[in-house]
Nucleic acid binder design. Structure first.
Length: 946
RNA sequence: GCGCCUGUGGCGAAAUUGGUAUACGCGCCAGACUUAGGAUCUGGUGAAGCGAUUCGUGCAGGUUCGAGUCCUGUCAGGCGCACCA
C-alpha cells in the first residue's frame, strides 16, 4: 500500500474534529500540564512556514505529555485587535471586525491543516466582548488600587483614602507619581474633585500628564517598546516627545518584584538579561545641594557618591522645573533660547547628533562636603525622566561629564590614584581614592575617603550622607510606567466616563462596555480619537447605559473616554482566560485557576521580551495580589523559537533596458537586482524564464542572457515577507508532501531556538523517511505484514535505543536530533526486515507526537480501537542496549592509532592487555617507557608513554 | 560604550557534557532498475598523499594522558540596552 498522505490526513482531520479528541476538562485524578504558544495576530497575509515552527514544537511536547499520562491543556486563540486591520479599514472602509473575522477563518483553516492538538472549544479572541469584559474589569481594578511598599502588594484605593483622612500623606510608603503633602485637615476641606486629584497620584491605573511618544503618522501615542530608533515599529513613522494626558499603568511599582521574579523562572539567560536591562535597577544616593546665596536647594541622584570631591559643575535637564527657579535674570535670555532649541530637536537628532550643548544658568550650588561653589548648567544630555532630572558632574570619572567639561572649559579633578584624565575620563570602578579631599582642603567634619578602594568609598559616602542628613540611599529604576491610551478605534474601549473633568468607572455590573459603531475610522475634525465619531457614546448614570452624545448634560449623562487600550491589554491575561473561557462571572474561576495554576511551557518569539512578556508578568502579579491568579509568575518555562527567514531570489536587469543577465554575467554590466518570486525559480536557482515573462506585464517581452543555457538567479537570506516574494506557504508544502512531513522537517531544520533560512530542498529527506517508515508495515503486495513473532535482539536494541534518545531529547526539545534518531532506527529495522508487532507498535507511539496523522492510521491498521495519543509512552530497557563486545580506540599519548574489540564487561586490566598485545602496539611503544594506561569506560584506552 | 549569545565539511547541523570530530539530512560522485527521470534503490563523499600517515572545529596561547567542549587573550557575526549619572 502506498503512503497516501492526502487521504490519511483528510480522514483523520475530520475524525479528530468530529470526536473532539483534543477537548480537555479539569480532572483531579491526573496531573495537569499547560502548554501555550503565543497567540497570533491574524494578519491578512495568512501563515507562512515560519509561523508554525513554535506551534509545532509546543504541540510535540503537549502530545508527548499526554502520552505520559498528563491532562494537557493546549489552547489557541487570536490577538485580534491591532493596527493593520484599522489601517486597512481607513483605506478601504471595510470594518476591522469584518476583515479580522475573515483573517481568523483563514488562519484556522491553515492551522487545522497542520494537525495541532489545540482544544478549540477554549478559543479566545481579544476583540470579543465576552473576552474584553475582563480586560476592562482588570483595568478598573487597577484604577481602584494603589501599591503599598510596606505590605509589598496592591491594595484597595479606599484604604488609602481612609488613611489620608485619618493621618494625611505623612509617612506613606506607597508608589506615587510625586510626593504630596496633605494633612487630614486639608483632606477634610477638599472638594470631591480635589480628593480625586490626590488619589490619582496613587492609583495603579492613572491619568497622567506625561511626556509621551507621539506618532503623528499613526495618530496615536506609543509605548517605549513600540518605538525603535526614533520611529514606530509598525509603519516606521517618526515619533516625537509630547506632553499629553494619558492613561498609564503604574508598572514601575512592581519593578523590584519583576526583577526578583526572574530568578524563579526557567527562561533563557538572554531574555532575562534583556528584562533586567529594561527594568534597569541602580543603587545609589540622593544628595541635596544648596543654592549659593539663596534659600533654595535641589536633589541629585548618583551611583558614584564616592566622587563627590570631584564635582566641578551641576547639570539640569532642560525639561526640569528647576531650570526656571535657578536661572538668573542675566542668563534668562540665553537659557530660554537654549530651551527653545532643544524643544525643536527631535529624538532622532538628539541621538544621532550627539553634539555637546548646554548653557549656564547663572546660579551656583554648594558642595555639602567641601562648601565649594560650583556652577549649575542646563544640558540635554541629562534626562528629565530619570532620577531627579539633575546631576552632579564629575568629569574625571564620567565620559559625558568629561565631554561637557572639555567643551565649556570646566575643571577636571581626578580622584583615583594613577588615573590619567588628560585624554579621556577614567570610568572603571576600581583603584584607590585620592584627592578626597585634596591636600590642605577642609571637608565637612573632616570626612575623608583617601586610601579607600572605590567600592569602600561608595559605601562610606552613602553612610555619611544618611548620618548627616545630606540625602538618602536610593534605588532607581529605568522602567517607566506603561502608557495605556491609544488614539485608535480598533481596541478595547475604556469603561470610563468624565464628570467635572475627572474620570469615573462605569459600574462593574455594566461590563463589558462594547465598542460603538463609527462611520469613519479617522480622527474627528477637532482632532479627537476615532471614537469621537460615534453617535452613541455617552454614559447615562441614571439608567446605566450608553446613550446618544446629544444627551450629554453633565448632570446624569456624561461623555465617555475616547481613547482605546493598546495591543498589550488584551494579551496580558489571556492564558488565565483559557483556563475558564466561558465564565461570565469571573476572569477565571478559583477552581479552574487552582487546577491549571500557570503556564508550564510557553513558546513564542523573543521579540516580545520588553513588551508582552513584561506587561503580562506585571498584570499577573497584580491579579495575584487580588487573589485571582494563584501563582505569581505566569510562565514557568519559556522557549523562544528562532525566526524562519526567507531565501530570496534576484534577477539582474541591465539598467535602462528590459534585458536580464544570469548571475555569473552580471558583473559585466551595470545592473539592478530585482526580487523575483521564488515560485518561478527551480533547483539550482534556475529561473523559469517563460513563467517570469508571464509573471508581470512589464516583463512580458523580457530578454535573457543565459549561461550554459540557463538563467541562474542570485539569492540572499532575508526576512520572510510578501514584498520580497520569498514567502513559502505551508498549504503548498502540505499539498505536496503532507502535514506530517512539514512538521518533521520544520523540527529537523535545526534547534528550535535558532533562526534559520527556509530551504525547501531538504524536505525530500523527511518525506522519504516517512515513506520508509510506512513501508515497514507492508509487504511487496501492499498487505499489512506485521507478525506476532518475538522480536530479534537487534530489533529490540534499535527500538530501545530510539526510545531512550527520543525520551531524553523531549525535555530539551532537541527535536532535530530525535528526527535523526528516527531515521537511523527505521533504516536499521528495514535492513533487519523487522516485522515484529512489539517493535513496530513502539515505533508508532514514539513517532506520534511528531507525525500524528500517519501514526493514527498505522495504529488503527494495527487493530487498535483507541487513538494513539492515549497510548502509554514506551520505556526502554538499558539491558537491551548493552553490547556484547565494544570497540575501543587505542591512543598513545593522546593520538588514536588503532582500535580493538573487547568484551563489554572486560576489566581494565584485560583491556590493557588486549591493547598491548595488538600487533601494531610495538611500533608506538618503541624506545619509550610506559607510564600508565587510562581506560575510559566504553570509549578509549589511552597509553601514556615517556 | 556595557551586557548576552554564536563561530565545526559545499549547505542545515550532530558530538553520550573532557574521551574514535563531522551522526542525520541536503547537495555532489558512482552504480542498479529504466524509453525516460527533478522517480526509486545501493554504495561513496573533511583536506593532502599511491601509501603507511599527516593536517583539520574563527585565530593565538594555556590546563590535561586526552580539548569542538574548560581557562586567558583576540577577531568576526547576531541580539539587547544605551547620554540611565
Amino acid at each position: 500500500m502506498d503512503y497516501n498522505f492526502t487521504d490519511i490526513e483528510a480522514r483523520w482531520r475530520k475524525r479528530w474534529a468530529d470526536e473532539k479528541v483534543y477537548a480537555v476538562k479539569e480532572d483531579a485524578t491526573r496531573p495537569k500540564y499547560y502548554v501555550l504558544s503565543m497567540f497570533p495576530y491574524p494578519s491578512g497575509a495568512g501563515l507562512h512556514v515560519g509561523h508554525p515552527l513554535g506551534y509545532i514544537a509546543a504541540d510535540i511536547y503537549a502530545r508527548y505529555k499526554r502520552n505520559r499520562g498528563y491532562n494537557v491543556l493546549q489552547p489557541m486563540g487570536y490577538d485580534a485587535y491591532g493596527l493593520p486591520a484599522e489601517q486597512y479599514a481607513i483605506q478601504t472602509g471595510q470594518h476591522p471586525a469584518v476583515t479580522t473575522e475573515q483573517n481568523i477563518a483563514r488562519y484556522r483553516e491553515q492551522l487545522d491543516l497542520i494537525g495541532f492538538s489545540f482544544d478549540w472549544s477554549r478559543e479566545v479572541r481579544t476583540c470579543a466582548p465576552r473576552y474584553y469584559k475582563w480586560t476592562q474589569w482588570a483595568f478598573q481594578r487597577m484604577f481602584n488600587s494603589f501599591y503599598c511598599y510596606n505590605c509589598g502588594k496592591a491594595q484597595p484605593i479606599d484604604k488609602l483614602a481612609a488613611r489620608i483622612a485619618q493621618k494625611g500623606t505623612a509617612g506613606l510608603n506607597v508608589a506615587q507619581t510625586q510626593p504630596l503633602d496633605v494633612t487630614p485637615q486639608q483632606w477634610a476641606d477638599m472638594t470631591e474633585r480635589e480628593r480625586q486629584e490626590v488619589l490619582m497620584n496613587y492609583r495603579l491605573a492613572y491619568l497622567g500628564e506625561t511626556m509621551v511618544n507621539w506618532c503623528a503618522g499613526l495618530g496615536t501615542v506609543l509605548a517605549n517598546d513600540e518605538v525603535v530608533d526614533g520611529v514606530s515599529v509598525r509603519g516606521g513613522f517618526p515619533v516625537e516627545q509630547k506632553k499629553m494626558k494619558q492613561w498609564c499603568l503604574r508598572i514601575s511599582a512592581y519593578a523590584q518584584r519583576l526583577l526578583d521574579g526572574l530568578d524563579t523562572i526557567d527562561w533563557s539567560d538572554s531574555i532575562k538579561e534583556t528584562q533586567r536591562n529594561w527594568i534597569g535597577r541602580s543603587e545609589g544616593a540622593e544628595v541635596t545641594f544648596k543654592v549659593a546665596g539663596r534659600d533654595e536647594s535641589f536633589v541629585i541622584f548618583t551611583t558614584r557618591a564616592d566622587t563627590i570631591f570631584g564635582v566641578t559643575f551641576m547639570v539640569l535637564a532642560p525639561e526640569s522645573e528647576l531650570v526656571q527657579t535657578l536661572t538668573t535674570p542675566e542668563q534668562k535670555a540665553a537659557v530660554d533660547a537654549y530651551l527653545e532649541e532643544v524643544k525643536h530637536r527631535t529624538e532622532l537628532d538628539r541621538m544621532a547628533g550627539k553634539k555637546v550643548t548646554g548653557v549656564f544658568t547663572g546660579s551656583y550650588a554648594v558642595n555639602p562636603f567641601t562648601g565649594d561653589e560650583i556652577p549649575v548648567w542646563v544640558s540635554d544630555y541629562v534626562l528629565a525622566g530619570y532620577g531627579t532630572g539633575a546631576i552632579m558632574a564629575v568629569p574625571a570619572h564620567d565620559s559625558r561629564d568629561y565631554a561637557f567639561a572639555r567643551k565649556f572649559g570646566l575643571p577636571v579633578v581626578p580622584l583615583i590614584e594613577g588615573a590619567d584624565v588628560t585624554e579621556e575620563s577614567f570610568e572603571a570602578k576600581e583603584g584607590i581614592v585620592t584627592n578626597s579631599p585634596a591636600e590642605g582642603k577642609q571637608s565637612l567634619d573632616g570626612f575623608s575617603l583617601n586610601g579607600l578602594s572605590v567600592k569602600e568609598a561608595i559605601a562610606a559616602t552613602k553612610r555619611f550622607v544618611e548620618e548627616k542628613g545630606l540625602g538618602r540611599v536610593k534605588v532607581n529604576f529605568r522602567l517607566r510606567d506603561a502608557i495605556f491610551s491609544r488614539q485608535r478605534y480598533w481596541g478595547e474601549p475604556f469603561p470610563v466616563y468624565y464628570k467635572d473633568g475627572m474620570p469615573y468607572m462605569i459600574p462593574e455590573a455594566c461590563l463589558p462596555l462594547t465598542l460603538p459603531e463609527v462611520d469613519k475610522f479617522l480622527p474627528t475634525e477637532t482632532g479627537e480619537p476615532p471614537l469621537g465619531n460615534a453617535a452613541k457614546w455617552a454614559w447615562d448614570t441614571a439608567a446605566n447605559t450608553v446613550v446618544e452624545n446629544a444627551r450629554i448634560d453633565n448632570a446624569t449623562v456624561f461623555p465617555l473616554e475616547l481613547s482605546t487600550m493598546p495591543g498589550f491589554a488584551g494579551s496580558s491575561a489571556y492564558y488565565l482566560r483559557y483556563m475558564d473561557p466561558h465564565d461570565d462571572d469571573a476572569l477565571v474561576s478559583p477552581q479552574a485557576d487552582q487546577y491549571w495554576q500557570a503556564v508550564d511551557l510557553y513558546v513564542g518569539g523573543s521579540e516580545h521580551a520588553t513588551g508582552h512578556l513584561i506587561y503580562s508578568r506585571f498584570w499577573n502579579k497584580f491579579l495575584h495580589d487580588l487573589g485571582v491568579s494563584c501563582i505569581e509568575e505566569p510562565f514557568a518555562k519559556l522557549v523562544n523559537q528562532g525566526m524562519i527567514q526567507g531565501r530570496s531570489n534576484f534577477v539582474y536587469r541591465i539598467k535602462g533596458t528590459n534585458r536580464f543577465v544570469s548571475l555569473g554575467l552580471k558583473d559585466k554590466y551595470d545592473v539592478t537586482p530585482i526580487h523575483v518570486d521564488i515560485s518561478l525559480v527551480g533547483g539550482g536557482d534556475v529561473l523559469d524564464t517563460e513563467a517570469f515573462r508571464q509573471w508581470r506585464p512589464e516583463y512580458a517581452d523580457a530578454e535573457f542572457e543565459l549561461e550554459d543555457g540557463k538563467y541562474v538567479c542570485g539569492w540572499a537570506v532575508e526576512k520572510m515577507s510578501k514584498s520580497m516574494f520569498n514567502v513559502s506557504n505551508p498549504d503548498n508544502v502540505i499539498a505536496k508532501y503532507g502535514a506530517d512531513t512539514l512538521r518533521l522537517y520544520e523540527m529537523f531544520l535545526g534547534p528550535i531556538t535558532q533562526s534559520k533560512p527556509w530551504d525547501q530542498n531538504g524536505i525530500d529527506g523527511c518525506f522519504r523517511f516517512l515513506r520508509r517508515a510506512w513501508n515497514l508495515f507492508f509487504d511487496k503486495q501492499g498487505n499489512l505484514a506485521v507478525t506476532d513473532d518475538a522480536p530479534t535482539k537487534e530489533a529490540l536494541k534499535s527500538i530501545h535505543k530510539l526510545t531512550k534518545k527520543v525520551t531524553e531529547d523531549m525535555e530539551e526539545m532537541s527535536y532535530n536530533t530525535s528526527v535523526a534518531a528516527f531515521m537511523i532506527c527505521v533504516s536499521e529495522l528495514a535492513a533487519q526486515k523487522c516485522r515484529s508487532r512489539e517493535v513496530l507498535e513502539r515505533l508508532v507511539v514514539l513517532l506520534s507526537p511528531f507525525a500524528p496523522f500517519v501514526t493514527c492510521e498505522l495504529w488503527q491498521l494495527l487493530g487498535h480501537k483507541e487513538i494513539v495519543f492515549d497510548a502509554p509512552w514506551p520505556t526502554w530497557d538499558e539491558a537491551c542496549l548493552k553490547e556484547d563486545t565494544v570497540t575501543l580506540g587505542v591512543s598513545f599519548n593522546g593520538k588514536t592509532r588503532f582500535t580493538i574489540d573487547v568484551a563489554a564487561d572486560a576489566t581494565p586490566d584485560e583491556v590493557q592487555a588486549t591493547a598491548l598485545a595488538h600487533e601494531a602496539a610495538p611500533r608506538y611503544m618503541e624506545g619509550k617507557q610506559l607510564v600508565k594506561v587510562i581506560v575510559v569506560p566504553r570509549r578509549i584506552v589511552n597509553i601514556v608513554l615517556k
